[in-house]
């Protein structure tokens, strides 16, 4: 077949076009180009840390520091950090609750209650309410603690720890029958807990139910 000049030129042009298309496809598919355009549109500085544009404000770091210090039982330092945090962010209810808890663990029940009182009751979660009740018990303010425990147990009847606190408090108030009723409910959920059964046995002794107490104590010695 005779190759004419036209055909030759046409083939050359087509081949050249094909090659350009390959190179151009490679170029426009490059993600670095796409992302550079995106970053330009978003006005980001490509030379800094394009993947780390998030800001970490001081108060966030301080909050986490306060929590970690409490895990380490460095309560005074933790309280100090919480106080600094709440100066900057006084509306952080969660942080206030946490600080109140730390005050409680540090033996400052009065201050803990004072902080909890600053928080509107509807914003307190159940865990914080329990802490308030524990603080009242530590102050021997049983009348204030009891309604909080009972209200909590209505919502969380399976919480053996909270029920135990109520049972113990009732026994300290010499309300042995009520305390025994609570212990019996607890032992239905955790029948193998030796320590709870022993505490139950002691309450039975104080309530003058020695025979029953002896049986319960025998169960703990098996």
């Amino acid at each position: 077949m005779r190759i004419t000049t036209t055909r030759f030129v046409f083939s050359l042009v087509t081949g050249f076009f094909g090659l350009m298309l390959i190179l151009f496809s490679d170029y426009i598919n490059s993600p670095s180009i796409i992302e550079a355009q995106e970053n330009l549109a978003q006005n980001q500085n490509q030379n800094q840390y394009p993947f780390l544009n998030e800001e970490i404000p001081d108060w966030k770091a301080r909050w986490e520091l306060a929590k970690v210090l409490s895990y380490l039982k460095r309560y005074k330092e933790s309280i100090f950090e919480y106080e600094k945090l709440l100066k900057e962010k006084p509306d952080l209810i969660e942080a206030k609750c946490e600080m109140a808890n730390v005050l409680f663990w540090n033996g400052e029940q009065d201050k803990a209650i004072a902080v909890f009182r600053q928080i509107p009751e509807e914003k307190l979660d159940d865990k914080s309410k329990l802490f308030i009740a524990d603080a009242y018990v530590a102050q021997k303010n049983y009348d204030k603690a009891e309604p909080i425990y009972r209200s909590y147990l209505e919502k969380h009847p399976e919480d053996a720890k909270a029920r135990l606190k109520l049972a113990e408090m009732l026994s300290w108030q010499k309300r042995y029958d009520e305390s025994i009723a609570q212990y019996e409910m607890i032992l239905k959920t955790v029948p193998n807990d030796i320590q709870i059964r022993r505490k139950y046995a002691f309450v039975l002794i104080w309530a003058d139910k020695q025979t029953q107490a002896a049986e319960e104590l025998k169960k703990t010695l098996k």
């Binding site: 083939s11 087509t14 081949g15 076009f17 094909g18 090659l19 298309l21 390959i22 496809s25 490679d26 598919n29 490059s30």
Partner: peptide, 22 residues
């Protein structure tokens, strides 16, 4: 026809080349 074939081949090779070189 030649043009279409070249176009298809160039698209195919560009995709293949991308998978190979990137």
């Amino acid at each position: 026809l030649c043009f279409i074939v070249l176009l298809v081949l160039s698209c195919y090779f560009s995709i293949t080349a991308y998978h190979v070189f990137h």
